[in-house]
Nucleic acid binder design. Structure first.
Lengths: 301, 301
DNA sequence: TCAAGTAATTGTCCAGGACAAATATGAACA
DNA sequence: TGTTCATATTTGTCCTGGACAATTACTTGA
């Protein structure tokens, strides 16, 4: 049984860490330490790829690589955020805990109906505002603590996506103002933020057009102009490299007409200071507020 | 008015061409020829980025970079495949042409209802088997000819996705065998192939679990084992680098139990020879055949 | 016309250096 | 004790220029 070895390009695919970063880590910290194939090229064993994923995850929580590389393997996992306090868990209600349990059980139909029930019990608006964010966070944290696997997170995302899309499709399509263009930038593949926003804004009668994920900036511009959008709304997940967010927003800001608002939301913008001409939405209730503000600023046209 | 310049990372984002490739093209062909910013780093003007996009499109049609770089700008566009012959257009029916027109008009609601009407007229199975593939191809080709923009393609994909998901959600969930796990590998972000397959197989009573796009191979394995899948179905679009397909499938094949079938479908596998232990599905009718074959091979359990 | 061998093309890898931006640390001060 | 500012360290990404295997094109001979 010969073990599986991955090329540097494959590791970039599997972990999201760039080739340059992988090489410079090896040079500086001695990890990862890939073998070499018959051509002298790096060949990473699966264990090292797993550890890289864990490290990436911890970095998302604020740890710095130099520190993590110096930590013995067995201590790494314990650096993950403290397990949720019982009180917080209770606050969040049984829903999150139950959903995480269902995800771990791989019972897709049960997961789907639990989510659907929650939606029907609360109504779409309250569900999106209160439950979905909390669920996303709970799932993300469970993943960070190693309690659920990547594929289980995919499974959750897929179910939630199906549910939200179904809910949106069943709404009367918004036809009023503002006209909102929703998408994410390249590299940002998380779609739930867009769907949550689309649901809320459509409920309020705004007319939303979604481009899905990963639209190049130049195309965001073209789409915004073509649709005469009032607002371009972008979603950034916690997984998106924070350092890139502000430069990206600044670039987009200079590409769009000044009258067109830019809203940037999601866990990826939580700790940032707002750049000129961009509204940061760290929480969906703020999106509602931003909508109200827009409407009061533009009373009649 | 100072012109917009993009860093090499931004160009990678906007064009999908790797940094290494961009640098080696510059070295070998003298194009692109970026300026340098105050730190000596490459700074690409927008015109060059546009030309790079065009070149990438043409390469997808079989042209090789050395040839393209040697072609004067004004001749480049004419290298794009010949416009569709009137006869072929007629064969394909008015639907595709009409849809492309609607996309270009940016009339999202009209596009959505045209698609919905086609679905209702034909029924889900026929719609998926006959119309959706043809539409995808027509849209892809229109993009290659420069008739529609990237964002317009996003718009189409989003509408079609919403429609298919809605249709799937309205079906009784499949509960029988085979159990099928659907997803794509990392880098492959096109979801329509998965949704089309899911619709067809669910109609036939198979029980489908979708992980969405871009699941790392190690997680595909874990998910397949966790769900005791009979079949792992992967979708590859035409945009996926062909050279990577067979190695990926071989790697996955060795990771999964021999009894678990692997189906690989989509435009990205059309010209390939089937590797051992993997079934290539170059057309969705073959998926139906493959399903029938599976059922006749596994009569009772 | 086809097959087989040779030549050119092309993407991706490598090493190792450099540097700006982000972050941490410590000193001086209120 | 707490805050501000300057200095030090850390870190990601860029750079050059070389190499090579795999793919594709071309040539030659049957």
């Amino acid at each position: 049984m010969n073990k599986t070895l991955l090329s540097i390009a494959a590791v970039e695919r599997e972990t999201g860490l760039g080739k340059d970063t992988l090489r410079v880590w090896e040079r500086r910290y001695g990890f990862p330490r890939p073998e070499r194939d018959q051509h002298g090229e790096r060949a990473y064993p699966l264990e090292q790829v797993e550890k890289l994923r864990l490290i990436k995850r911890l970095m998302g929580q604020g740890w710095r690589p130099g520190r993590l590389m110096a930590t013995p393997d067995e201590d790494l996992a314990s650096l993950a955020g403290p397990a949720e306090t019982p009180v917080a868990a209770e606050d969040k209600g049984a829903l999150a805990a139950g959903v995480v349990e269902l995800i771990r059980s791989h019972d897709t139909p049960a997961l789907a109906s639990a989510l659907r029930q929650a939606l029907h019990r609360q109504g779409l608006q309250q569900f999106v505002l209160e439950s979905v964010s909390a669920l996303n966070r709970a799932v993300g944290e469970a993943w960070m603590r190693g309690e659920i696997q990547v594929f289980e997170e995919h499974l959750y995302t897929e179910q939630m996506q199906a549910l939200l899309r179904q809910a949106i499709a069943s709404l009367p399509p918004g036809t009023g103002r503002p006209r909102v263009l929703l998408t994410t930038v390249p590299e940002e593949q998380h779609v739930l933020g867009i769907l949550m926003t689309e649901a809320l804004l459509t409920l309020e009668g705004a007319s939303c057009v979604s481009l899905g994920t990963q639209t190049p900036l130049a195309d965001i511009r073209q789409a915004a102009l073509a649709h005469r959008a009032d607002i371009v709304a972008l979603s950034f997940s916690a997984a998106f490299p924070q350092r890139q967010v502000l430069p990206l927003l600044a670039k987009l800001r200079e590409m769009l007409p000044a009258a067109m608002e830019i809203w940037a939301g999601g866990a990826g913008v939580e700790r940032l200071g707002a750049p000129d001409g961009v509204r940061l939405i760290t929480d969906l209730a703020q999106a509602m507020q931003a909508l109200a503000d827009w409407r009061s600023d533009m009373p009649a046209d």
